[in-house]
Design a protein around this nucleic acid. Structure first.
Length: 204
DNA sequence: GGTCGGATCATCT
DNA sequence: GATGATCCGACCG
């Protein structure tokens, strides 16, 4: 029994374009999770594009090729690629471009808009009070806040328990393009995008 | 304010 | 056996 598609969700067609284009247009869109029957949602304010096999920073760079981990990146546009980083955190990507062409957009930060209490509980730190700005400002943080993990790898992002809807578009002039974070190869490629002036991004 | 290192493990050499 | 699309706390100034 297959779960039905959310009518307002972005369709595969949206994702079937170059990762850089999708990364820009995902800004302002709304990511919604109903994992664990608890609804949490946030507006996407920061993304990074991993544009293809020629991108040395990509998990599916030419020198690596197709492996069990990056299999989702070769799948149809509009599915999730979720992987574990540093043995500790989960990171969510939206797969873009064409099937068999590995490219994806890393969702790096959200402005929380729904389920803040649930997020606070999931991100709770007994040692220290957490500011709302810390809830979803980073790929590992937002994955924890929305309860995302590897079981959602290759999930279609147009149906529960995880999907993306169109939001208020962000004007070109309000999008900043900078170098990607935490990578060593192709560190100067300006493929990180964030909403200029947003208080919710991981770094300014 | 900034910088540094530990956590922790799947993946790939 | 080394590495990493991160986060957090410790320490320094």
């Amino acid at each position: 029994m297959r779960r039905s598609r959310i009518k307002r969700a972005l369709s595969a067609r949206f994702y079937a374009r170059p990762a850089e284009v999708v990364a820009r247009e995902l800004l302002g869109c709304v990511l919604i999770s109903t994992v664990g029957a608890l609804r949490t949602a946030g507006r996407i304010v920061e993304t990074e594009a991993y544009v293809g096999p020629h991108d040395p920073a990509s998990h599916a760079a030419e020198r690596i090729g197709r492996t069990a981990r990056n299999e989702a990146m070769y799948g149809v546009p509009g599915i999730a690629y979720i992987y574990r980083i540093y043995g500790v955190h989960w990171c969510l990507n939206a797969v873009t471009d064409a099937r068999d062409y590995p490219a994806a957009v890393l969702i790096r930060a959200l402005e929380p808009i729904e389920g803040l209490e649930v997020m606070r509980r999931r991100r709770h730190n007994p040692a220290r009070a957490l500011h709302d700005r810390e809830l979803c400002s980073g790929p590992g943080r937002l994955a924890a806040a929305l309860a995302l993990d590897g079981t959602l790898d290759r999930h279609h992002l147009d149906q529960p328990p995880l999907w993306i809807e169109r939001g208020a578009p962000v004007a070109e002039a309000d999008i900043a393009a900078t170098s990607r974070i935490g990578i060593t190869r192709a560190a100067d490629w300006p493929l990180r995008f964030h909403v200029r002036g947003s208080a919710w991004v991981s770094r300014r």
